[in-house]
């Protein structure tokens, strides 16, 4: 699944560690999501959407 997490994080100038702390997950999880090696659970995806104030479908998109 494609995502804009790295882009959104860069806009706010947050490090992976800072974002991980805000979401209550490990830095490894953030890295794995950004590199598209891991798809987050639905609750975590909603948390990300809430944090960036955007609907999930604008952050995550299925592979074409």
């Amino acid at each position: 699944m494609k995502n804009r997490l790295r882009e959104l994080r860069a806009e706010r100038q947050w490090s992976q560690g800072e974002l991980a702390e805000k979401l209550g997950v490990s830095r490894q999880t953030i890295n794995a999501i950004e590199t598209e090696k891991y798809d987050p659970s639905l609750p975590l995806a909603f948390k990300i959407g809430l944090l960036f104030k955007q609907p999930i479908e604008r952050i995550f998109a299925p592979e074409a």
């Binding site: 997950v25 490990s26 999880t29 891991y38 975590l44």
Partner: peptide
Amino acid sequence: LLRGLDELQRR
């Protein structure tokens, strides 16, 4: 301990 883990670590 497993329940307290982060979701990626749990996986």
